[in-house]
């Protein structure tokens, strides 16, 4: 297996976006790309990352391999790469290590690191293609700010989607808060658009703690998609055009 990115910055951001939620995980490498699927320790949230082979500078995977890696260790290794350095990952069949090589574009500096692989028993969940009741596309910075703001007031947020707006509400010991975002078009700046596709109105409650973990992916993507159906986990997708995506799933809280 050998994969090369032109710039380390995307991979750094991917690892930063998921490492605090899942810790150790397995990267599944096939000839179509690298992916991981992992739940957090409480089995409430799930991360699914796909990095498509087309998004790499060069990519080769002769035999499918699953590489168990501590994401904190991977983050440490990637700290040694400059944002504009190229990154090459190499793994040979049956080897218990993965190699990282970072090269500056003027080629005057090359650094190499070897990371020990881990045996990880991953429990994969089958996630069926779902027709969601409501899909909201919005700037990822708006979601990050909304979740951070409301976290000051409560632990949970109720997200309610109607035809032309989406409302985030919370309450806690010191008071209550809500943020309403209305659909708005923008032909010249599509990344600032708020688009709501509603088949059925939805209202779901989620733990803000996890949403705040998810919005660590905001530096990867200007836009985010919230896909919701009543009594179903939320899917939060950060698309990375031509590269792949990060999707997070979060189980709702239900009233007893």
């Amino acid at each position: 297996f050998e994969a090369k990115w032109d710039h380390a910055s995307t991979l750094k951001k991917v690892i930063d976006a998921v490492k605090d939620l899942i810790g150790d995980t397995s990267w599944d490498c096939t000839n179509t790309g690298m992916s991981l699927q992992s739940m957090d320790s409480s089995h409430v949230a799930l991360v699914h990352v796909l990095l498509k082979s087309e998004g790499f500078e060069s990519y080769r995977c002769d035999r499918n391999v699953s590489m168990g890696i501590s994401l904190n260790s991977m983050a440490k290794v990637l700290k040694c790469a400059g944002n504009d350095d190229s990154v090459t990952l190499r793994h040979e069949s049956e080897s218990s290590v993965v190699n990282f090589a970072f090269e500056s574009h003027k080629e005057e500096r090359v650094s190499e690191f070897e990371l020990k692989l881990m045996n990880i028993d991953t429990e994969h969940l089958g996630i069926p293609e779902t027709e969601y009741d409501s899909i909201i596309k919005m700037p990822s910075a708006d979601l990050r700010r909304t979740c951070a703001d409301l976290s000051q007031f409560g632990d949970s947020v109720t997200i309610s989607c109607a035809k032309s707006d989406v409302r985030f509400e919370t309450s806690g010991d010191i008071g209550t808060g809500n943020v309403r975002l209305s659909a708005r078009g923008s032909s010249d700046k599509p990344e600032t658009e708020i688009a709501i596709e509603m088949i059925n109105p939805v209202s779901l409650t989620f733990a803000l703690k996890y949403l705040n973990f998810f919005t660590k992916a905001a530096p990867l993507s200007d836009t985010v998609k919230l896909c919701m159906s009543n009594n179903h986990p939320l899917c939060v997708e950060f698309p990375m055009p031509e590269v792949g995506y990060i999707r997070y799933y979060l189980a709702p809280k239900i009233d007893e």
């Binding site: 969940l125 089958g126 949970s156 409650t205 239900i254």
Partner: peptide
């Protein structure tokens, strides 16, 4: 009273 559900209640373990 809100209860946090787990993902296995919605998705099947493979």
């Amino acid at each position: 009273q809100e209860t946090q559900t787990r993902l296995e209640s919605y998705f099947t373990v493979q």
